[in-house]
Design a protein around this nucleic acid. Sequence first.
RNA 1: GCCCGGGUGGCGGAAUUGGUAGACGCGACGGACUUAAAAUCCGUUAUUCGAAAGGAUGUGGGGGUUCGAGUCCCCCCCCGGGCACCA
Length: 807
Amino acid sequence: MDYSHSEIEKKWQEHWRDIKLANCDVSLEKNNFYNLCMYPYPSGDLHMGHIRNYTIGDVITRYKQKQGFNVLSPMGWDSFGLPAENAAIKTGIHPKKFTEDRINNMRDQIQRLGSLYDWDKEVAAHDKNYYKWTQYLFIQLFNNDLAYKEDAPVNWCTSCNTVLANEQVIEGDCERCDSEVIKKNLNQWFLKISNYSEELLNGLDEIGDWPENVKSMQENWIGKSSGVQFNLKIDETELDFDVFTTRPDTLFGMTFAVISPEHDLMNEILSISSNSKEIKKYIDKAKSKSEFERMSITKEKTGVDTGLKVLNPINNKKVPLWVADYVLINYGTGAIMAVPGHDERDYEFAKKYNLEIVQVIIDKDHSIDIKEKPYIENGVLINSGDYDGLKSHTDGSESILKYLSDHNLGEKKVTYRLRDWLISRQRYWGCPIPLINCSKCGLVPESIQNLPVLLPEIDDYKNSEDSPLAKSEDFVTTECPNCGSEGKRETDTMDTFVDSSWYFLRYLDSQNEKSPFDQKIINSWLPIDQYIGGVEHAILHLLYSRFFVKALRDINLLNVDEPFHNLFSQGMINFGGSKMSKSKGNVVDPEAYFTTHGADALRLYILFMAPPSDGVEWNDGGIEGTKRFLNKFWDNMTKFSNLENNKTNDEDSLVRSMNQTIFSVTRHLEKFEFNTGVSDLMKANNEISSYLNKNTTVSKETKELVFSSMCNLLYPFSPHISSEIYDLYMNKDISTLDWPTYEESNLTNPTYELVVQINGKKKFTKVINTGTSQENAEEICKSEFNLNVSDFKKVIFVEDKIINFIG
RNA sequence: GCCCGGGUGGCGGAAUUGGUAGACGCGACGGACUUAAAAUCCGUUAUUCGAAAGGAUGUGGGGGUUCGAGUCCCCCCCCGGGCACCA
């Protein structure tokens, strides 16, 4: 029989609201647990990814509540961003109205899932009471030299008409719209995340429980590399430049040097090079190439000889200096020593342009042939003067480094791939950057009492090169807060990742009108005990937020090193082989399942279908199974409540089964193994079915045990039905019960099936008493299977498991 | 190329420290109930040989350690994700 889920779910959701089950008093200082699901972009409709995220989060919330924690579980909206603006361009609906309609719709849907959120603390990035403080924090960063404006070659999406962060360029294309990204020189705002490269990297070792893959993605992204930086002088000039290498041991193998076309020294080189016409042409060509073309590996390397020579600092050998765009301006020093004998890229280049190739490392068996391909492994130095015979990777490197540093030519150096975070966006629907260009004082932050700098009303959201905000004369023209003379406002808005880098701080004090947050509360509640969200945010959001918190710590706004202690990344839910998205038309709408199967069944299925960290293909059939389980559970409990009060012989095993289920579900919950937790409950339900098939009575104690354990254990997964059943038959609100505990003595079955092996192969099984000794087991094997210990060389006995006769 | 994951029935997936591989669910098949169907209930379901009893094979492939390997070690293949002309 189908139980009436719609009615029940509505009833309990109202009840939880009435008793304020989700409301958290953050002023308490004991037993706090901050459980956070990533706040969503308000796309308007909940998709299966959200359902998965918020179900996992709610399991944790309810489980931790039952363990006596004061759980904070807030929800809010990442509500700035492109879609609202694109919709405004298309339909004329104001982005604010558009966004808020969608938020309202989505909030309703989230509530139908039955998850507990403290809505009193709700935040929305686009709310002026929120972005006021985003601006405030930005000004603090600016005042502490952590925000700066600079001309820089930036990634420009030709379709979105805006700048993108490096992180938002995927294989040369825009992360959002897949259009081509080109390079452009623009004056842009940056946050100095690179100041924190080392700390962001080291923090990964000290952080709590994070998925390995996320840590490794962040490590890759930060891209630490240790080596040596040294100076190269251009022969017969006063010019010199630095190069960075991780292989100082190959210094004698340098047969040319390469400088990036964008290098600062290029103007001087052009003025003295005999080949300046060619170089100029080459530079212009490199500039016009897209980022992707430049980066493409398949592309053949190109370059131009400058005609100039540089001096190898260790032996004064003169080698040619080339310009080539395979050397990137924003890594290392933008120039390299080229060692074609021991570097693949230099090798390719040298082959193409017929440059000298010298071998300076030889392997143990002297078997390598540098004429075929470069040798990039370690070995022993040759052709390296006094250094011949040294091991390349240890003594060789160190000795050559010592020479360079002793002669003040170079030093040990660490470089990072991570670059500063570009946050300017030439878009309307974002947080305005609260800076003013004063004709006298230069760049000046808006005064704090004038915040927020409100988004102006404009008629036309379309942007060309300039941000749409530039269209509002009233907005742009203002007074300098310093000297009162005429100033012009910045017209760019911030990357929405700035909004999401601190929302979890605002939750704790979302109504505060005097400051972004209360430092005391933050320090007692952070780091967040459990953060849960999609693996797609492994780098961007998580790295930015970590940086933000460290920066705020250093300017004394809080005292926390890492925002997220434990992180859980759920896998993505796919449909028809690819990620669900509206544009692909492969969205499975959760809304329908609320009606047909109910929130409880949907929650249960999404937990049951796979380990939550795995990506998974959506499959309709499975949800029938979980609904079937809930129906059966309902029926079983109804029947069970009607059993007469009289103890039976089957009860002991039922009691054991309950204890085992408590033990197992608890263990699985602790390890985020929800799929197996659900299967434990299904198993237990089957036990109850078979008890009901055989018995018509049960003792009062066992009846109560079955109700309290089953409803309690099911409660985090499917809270409505478990609340209803417990209320119906035990007259109590299950949410008020503590998490159940098991009795150690009731976990073990009195008998087990002994596996009898001969030479490691299973031959027989026999049910015997738990705890049977080897001696007795051998006796049993003799009488049952005619196995005599004396006929075998050896007998291996593992208590309560196997006996193995070897002969 | 480098760095992380992962590979188990028709399918999703289970298997503390090495100890009965395939829990739980889906699907399929058979039966009960029904005029019939749906729903529900009961049973079967890794492959293969066999009428059966029973045997053999089996966790991507190949070696190894062990009384015993899905689990540990070495080599290889494939899939997913991240990074990638990073010097």
